[in-house]
Design a binder for these strands. Structure first.
Lengths: 346, 346
DNA sequence: CCCGTCATGAGGTACGTGCCTCATGACCTA
DNA sequence: TAGGTCATGAGGCACGTACCTCATGACGGG
């Protein structure tokens, strides 16, 4: 009866399949030298015994730690900075968990730099790469090549559909836009709503806009949408755009689906009665926190950077260990859109 | 230079402290037979080498798995059911991670049953207990006793301040109430707001009410608050309470800070023009999801059960391994209040 | 028939820690 | 001084997997 409680080991699998330990090992770790028929017998035994590699023993026995490389855009973007901070924090916490983490900054929005960095990854020293994807054919090809070399690629924040990436960690930006509209419509019985974007060349910004306008038109048809005006995620340009919007007929609300929120707040402050204009923005940063506290911003939609890094690491660990080879891949919970008011600021 | 990259092991600690492996082991695992002065030398070595127990090796070498026992209220409460479901899911996913999870149902809101269950925990088979606390002196004493026996206790959802519990995993319910008020105030320019509670004998319900009324009074003084009416988390009683509320002068909004949402929705449906009344409720369940989709409910505040279980397990694992003994305890991110509209339903 | 290739078996060591036993010396007390 | 308690050292086995080497037998081509 002890046997019923004990977890199955590689020895049990070997016995069940009628092969030696060495063969089980070859199958488990994808090494060559096993006939297809034999490999199938081993796989059957694994399934029938519900064998799962003992993670502790496996990590202990490995010659090297699992290694995950993050390729994150550099630059002054506050959100990317908080992503990097989260990576550092997790790297610290994962000391002793046999997981080594490297973060390499990539020139922002530069497909060539990103794909070059992906191509340079050595499967001997990298099990998994986590990238903030720029949508470009070169990047797609680099991901394909990395995958062929045995490096699992995970996209973060910005996806790369149609590529060989194994997983996407991030929020649903269309849903984010829809949610923003749903709140804005309830906040403002009627009136003109100004829309600000960073750049419509970015996939996530396009998706947010799509969701926002769809819900506004369908559910709150009494409102007039102004824009979108592009602020290119820059404080100065965003301030100029907002000032221009405020110069027109009175606005009931403003939705900024991009960055540059410091500029937005500055423009509102100079305008005066900013308390009456409902404002919805994205990403919890120093600027948006201040905006929430002062009342300049009503709601912030956030993609929790820390949670995203944690999720990416969990996925990366899972793929790096090839855990999904013989059992269903454990689908991690999708990243949720965080909604923050002054009253639930974390 | 290899030495600089290698993680420190117990051997290194022993050498650095000038003691034997056995003594390091005694210190690390809190076994008796070490003079205070010697233990201090070992602790110094641990700090100076930044030694961290290798989690993989440690788990592998242990005679038994880490074991975490959940004591969760039973009954028909939809939220507790989803907590249990989350526990089952995680238990499944943690096969192979040397963590064994037991969930024991406890008669709801019964301090005697809860404390008896805590007293019955054997430190030989339980490293950590996660409880949904009922506020009572017996429970406090049981937690104290368990802690003395070497069982770390973590409170979930409902805290037990002033007890020997090592950690609380849950949301800030005052903030939740404040957030609900902040939304409600923005949704309704003015008017009467009905308030429903489960039972004001519950700490979390009291806290939500406190936060809600504080913000309504301070920021939206034009509104008249009706209630709270107690529905005792029961659909029938809640429906009756709502029907009574709807019989009075027209309401602009309803805040249900307890359960029984199916009753709330039923009463609204029978009343007719429910689309005009803004409704804020708690916990994503089948009932509240339906309410969001149909438009009967505008916003649901949720404490992600899955996230809470994950956080509780992380904390439990950390305490069960005594990781925080020589380094700063890794404070896990606090559980966030989830805000859900129809448009960002997960 | 010889040799090369291939699938597989046999057996070992290593990873870092938990936990056990036994020995040794120091110190205290009667 | 004998006997007892206590702090500590020395050493070893175990955990389950990774990864290595070497042996063996089968098979096929020339």
């Amino acid at each position: 009866m002890d046997d019923l409680k004990r977890r199955a080991t590689v020895h049990d699998v070997a016995r069940e399949a009628g092969v030696s330990l060495a063969t089980v090992d070859r199958v488990l770790n994808g090494r060559p030298g096993v006939r297809g028929e034999t490999a199938e017998r081993v796989a059957d035994a694994i399934r029938s015994l519900d064998f799962r590699r003992d993670v502790s023993a496996s990590l202990l026995a490995r010659a090297r730690d699992l290694s995950v490389t993050f390729l994150i855009p550099d630059g002054s973007n506050a959100f990317m900075a908080s992503l990097n901070a989260a990576i550092t924090r997790h790297a610290q916490a994962l000391k002793g968990e046999r997981l080594s983490i490297v973060a390499r900054p990539i020139h922002a929005f530069d497909p060539a730099a990103l794909s070059a960095a992906i191509m340079a990854l050595d499967p001997k020293t990298t099990d998994c790469a986590v990238i903030v994807a720029t949508e470009h054919e070169t990047v797609r090809r680099a991901v394909e090549a990395a995958s062929k070399r045995g490096i699992a690629v995970v996209t973060l924040v910005s996806d790369l559909p149609g590529s060989a990436r194994r997983h996407f960690v991030g929020i649903d930006n269309v849903a984010a836009g829809r949610t923003a509209a749903s709140l804005m419509g309830r906040f403002c019985p009627s009136g003109r709503i100004g829309i600000l974007a960073g750049s419509l060349g970015l996939r996530d910004h396009r998706e947010r806009l799509e969701g926002f306008t769809a819900v506004m038109e369908a559910e709150f048809p009494g409102h007039e949408l102004i824009g979108p005006r592009e602020g290119f995620d820059d404080d100065m340009l965003t301030e100029a755009a907002v000032t221009e919007l405020l110069g027109g007929p009175p606005l009931a609300g403003i939705y900024n689906l991009g960055a540059g929120n410091a500029g937005l707040i500055a423009a509102l402050g100079k305008h005066g009665d900013s308390g009456r204009i409902r404002v919805v923005a994205h990403e919890l940063t120093a600027a948006t926190r201040d905006g929430l506290r002062s009342g300049a911003i009503d709601v912030v939609l956030d993609q929790n950077p820390d949670g995203e890094i944690a999720a990416a690491l969990a996925v990366a660990r899972s793929y790096a260990m090839g855990e999904s080879a013989h059992h269903a891949a454990p689908q991690p919970a999708p990243i949720e859109i965080g909604l923050f008011l002054r009253d639930n600021l974390r």
